[in-house]
């Protein structure tokens, strides 16, 4: 029995080691002047200085963040409004919307990116440096997930509140804004967060639709691995250490808040 317990724990640690060792080792080396993992060099913050002082890198990071926030906002508005509308539509309309909504979800990103790119460039003749193809492409990827996270909230919400508001003289728009929306906020927020992470993680849509001079973190990293200066390479180690820290804080934060929310709901 004891050996079984030991092997169970051992397995868990082994898998965790596989998942985390690369990230943690890289994070460790980002604080040294080493240009290769395994070589021992002294402590240095050079990578962090390079990361935040090289215009190319700073532009790339700010550009990625702005794009993610923009795409997420657009997706959240479009997806939330669409979900409310579709929820009250006839079965046929809702079915059609949900079916097309499912396409970007199951489709490979390569295909989504490629097809949006042909549509925009070959059919609509929109130039890539307008950023329109990029924003549209990433939005097409993200909206379905906003829709999917809002719909369950609509199902769970108390529909009599809306009717009550209407009976008391609210206009349709006012009732939606003041009664429906507040009840589905958790779905909207999780949709927004999903959209942010999808945009930050996207490589394929960005690479097919982005302006030539613009880079997201993903496209930049991939280009950097095709041979570039060592200082850039190690500065990216610093970037991944920072992103790791931010993700840990966000995930832990979200879960602590989530648990507190749950407890509140249970006691009230």
């Amino acid at each position: 029995m004891k050996t079984l317990k030991f092997f169970q724990g051992f397995w868990i640690w082994l898998v965790l080691l596989f998942l985390y060792a690369p990230i943690l080792i890289l994070a460790f080396y980002s604080f040294t002047s080493a240009t290769m993992i395994g070589s021992i060099r002294e402590f240095s913050l050079d990578n962090y200085v390079t990361l935040f002082t090289t215009p190319e890198l700073v532009d790339m990071i700010i550009g990625t963040l702005l794009l993610a926030v923009g795409v997420a906002l657009l997706s959240t508005i479009l997806g939330t409004v669409g979900a409310i509308g579709s929820f009250y539509s006839s079965k046929k309309v809702r079915g059609a919307i949900e079916l097309s909504n499912q396409i970007p979800v199951v489709n490979a990103d390569v295909v989504t990116g490629f097809s949006v790119c042909i549509l925009m460039i070959a059919i609509f003749h929109v130039r890539k440096d307008t950023y329109v193809p990029l924003v549209i492409g990433q939005t097409a990827l993200c909206v379905p997930f906003v829709y999917l996270s809002v719909i369950p909230r609509l199902k769970k919400m108390d529909h009599q509140l809306y009717e009550a508001a209407r009976d008391l003289g609210c206009t349709v728009g006012m009732a939606i804004w003041r009664v429906t929306i507040p009840q589905i906020v958790p779905g909207i927020t999780s949709g927004f967060m999903t959209a942010i992470t999808l945009s930050l993680d996207d490589y394929f849509i960005a690479t097919y639709t982005k302006p030539a001079t613009f880079n997201t973190i993903s496209t930049y990293v991939v280009n950097a691995t095709r041979g570039s200066q060592t200082s850039i390479k190690t500065a990216l180690w610093a970037l991944s250490a920072i992103i790791f820290l931010v993700v840990v804080l966000c995930v832990v934060g979200a879960n602590v808040f989530g648990m507190r929310d749950k407890q509140k709901n249970e006691t009230s």
Binding site: S89, A96, I97
Partner: peptide, 25 residues
Amino acid sequence: FHRKQLAIPYAIFLILFVILPLLVI
């Protein structure tokens, strides 16, 4: 104004940027 009309912008978006790209390929 009906609530279901809110579906229109999303439906248009889906047709233009999800269905149409597939038809194009």
